[in-house]
């Protein structure tokens, strides 16, 4: 299968704090990979390194087999313009939505298409509407984000990322800021995307989503990948004490027998 994203020997530190200590992983086309780990394990930082919201301290990121940035004497350097165009090919959805409050839902979804991809307004609008339909919000196109529920906001944010026609989608704890009753609609949308064959890398605490939707689960601890495998296997039979403790901490989720 075609590798969309590959990461080699990735390190990230903030000042003296080493958050990621040598990560190697890949995401194949059409695959949904879930990153699990307790807070501080580095899973969000890893996700943010994939589209260079954070620039890695060391290591390499490949998109479709092409190295991002350029290497001279073992040091990576990145041009801002290269990173911008990279980000158009990698969609990202945040915990706190980050919708643009001064724009309508439709304008939010059109913005990147027009400003960055230079699509015509007509094309951007029809694409925006199509993506809003896809997440079930076709009727909210003219609303402002402030008038939407948290779940609706997050679905708009998903549509905004999808409208750029990305090769892969990153989800950074997208249900953590939602009221419990709104989590379901967002997870449903994500599952639908996975079923449609979207390539996804997901940081979440929703073990149910990991169990039912993910093709692969990675468990991060202390900045390294501690365990990796198919969810049905790894969630039921964790090899390490750290992962067992982590799963016990999420006792709300009962694994099917």
């Amino acid at each position: 299968m075609d590798e969309i994203v590959r990461i080699d020997g990735l390190h990230k530190s903030f000042g003296n704090l080493d958050v990621l200590k040598g990560i190697g992983m890949s995401v194949k086309a059409g695959e949904t990979v879930v990153l699990l780990g307790s807070s501080g394990s580095g899973k969000s930082t890893l996700l943010r390194c994939v589209n260079f919201m954070e620039v890695p301290t060391q290591g390499q990121v490949f998109l479709h087999g092409d190295l991002v940035g350029s290497e001279t004497n073992g040091k990576m350097s990145y041009r801002e313009s290269e990173l911008c165009s990279l980000r158009t090919r990698i969609g990202m959805v945040f915990q706190h939505f980050n919708l643009f409050p001064h724009m309508t839902v439709e304008q939010n979804v059109m913005e990147g298409q027009i400003t960055v991809l230079k699509r015509t307004r007509t094309e951007a609008r029809s694409k925006a509407l199509a993506q809003l339909e896809r997440v079930g919000l076709g009727d909210k196109a003219q609303e402002y984000p402030a008038r939407l529920s948290g779940g609706q906001k997050q679905r708009v944010a998903i549509a905004r990322a999808l409208a750029m026609d990305p090769d892969v989608m990153l989800f950074d704890e997208v249900t953590s800021a939602l009221d419990p009753e709104l989590v379901g609609e967002v997870l449903k949308t994500m599952r639908q995307l996975a079923d449609e064959g979207m390539t996804m890398l997901v940081v979440t605490h929703e073990l149910g989503f990991a169990y039912h939707v993910a093709n692969r689960v990675l468990f991060l601890d202390g900045g390294v990948i501690l365990e990796e495998g198919e969810p049905q296997h790894i969630l039921k039979n964790p090899k390490t004490t750290r992962m067992r403790e982590f799963l016990d901490g999420h006792s709300l989720f009962k694994l099917p027998d």
């Binding site: 911008c84 969609g91 945040f94 980050n98 643009f100 990147g112 991809l117």
Partner: peptide
């Protein structure tokens, strides 16, 4: 971040 994530400079 939202702007950056959709590729804006």
């Amino acid at each position: 971040e939202g702007a950056k994530a959709i590729g804006m400079s």
